[in-house]
Amino acid sequence: MTKRILLVEDNPTDEKLTVLAFKKCGVPHELHVVRDGAEALDYLRTNELPTVVLLDLHLPKIDGLEVLRILRSEARTRSLPIVILTSSREDEDIVSGYSLGANAYVRKPVEYAEFAATARNLGVFWLTMNKPPPGVAS
């Protein structure tokens, strides 16, 4: 079964870049994109859980940190691997992200080469190296 990544991203450029970067990561997967916080919650409540969620922080409707808080408060998604993928490097966002239960915090580099490397590393790590919790496709 193909491993699935859920990308929560509102910026179409970033979405496109991320999709392209992940295509080259070398691990077969399916990348599903939702474009705001509410859509993300809907998707996760109604579909089989993905292997990992890549969550932006600045999102329309429901903010990324709020999405995280809600997911961690629901039994089904309490242990779901969630990686914050954002432009922010504010201490406040990093601290909040971890305290709300993010599994990782990754800042999106501007330079494409770095960005591609980041995507590759994320894909390799979460799709192959990481052992997901029960209930999450592996």
Partner: peptide, 18 residues
């Protein structure tokens, strides 16, 4: 501004590289 400026920059850089 700081964060929202980064996304287009990333786009510029990213697509120029692609």
């Amino acid at each position: 501004v700081a964060h929202d400026l980064r996304a287009p920059l990333r786009g510029m850089n990213g697509f120029a590289n692609l």
